[in-house]
Amino acid sequence: MWFSTGSRRLTRVLGWLAALGLLAGLVLALGVAPREVSQGDVQRIMYLHVPSILTAYLAFAIVLVASLGYLVSRRQAWDRWAGSAAEIGTLFTGLTLASGSLWGKPTWGTWYLMLRGMIDEAERRAQFAAVLGIVAALNIPLVHFSVLWWRTLHQPPTLLRPVPAALAGIFRFTLGVNWVAFTLLFAYLLAKRIRVGRLSEEGLP
């Protein structure tokens, strides 16, 4: 669709911007940002964790829109967007697994891809994936609140709670830079993934 062969240069620029942003974000997160008083250095994981989950949410929002787009227009390109965004979104939720506090969220991307893998016929796969993508994306707020409420009674893990109250300027700046960098990286990977999908022509696995 938008990412035709002509925009390969744009993709490359996006890649370099993402690389620069990630570098800056890393320096800020590990070097410049001061040690958070109540949680210690371990709080630095937040600069990885929060941008990852926000990027994953962006990915799943794209899955939702692309799935709706497919159902309305039946154009294969929409399906490619949905499948690619789901794959990369799953990757980013996987990153938050390391700090282990957002269980329940990473699972759905995995089984969305599993359903895609189990249906061979392209059109039916696209239709079912679209329905599943809509259900799963709209389910995310429900999962979010249910896990939150479940945990507020049973002791929440002390580790990696968001920094309480007003996030001081430098913390917020570091977080912002990392968020932008992750979003750029996501856009770059998505463009590449969609291009691969279009070139290999047999649709997405």
């Binding site: 759905w108 089984w111 599993m114 259900v135 999962v143 896990v147």
Partner: peptide, 9 residues
């Protein structure tokens, strides 16, 4: 496998 993750909440 499809139904259970949706039913978490």
């Amino acid at each position: 496998v499809l139904v259970l993750p949706v039913e978490v909440p």
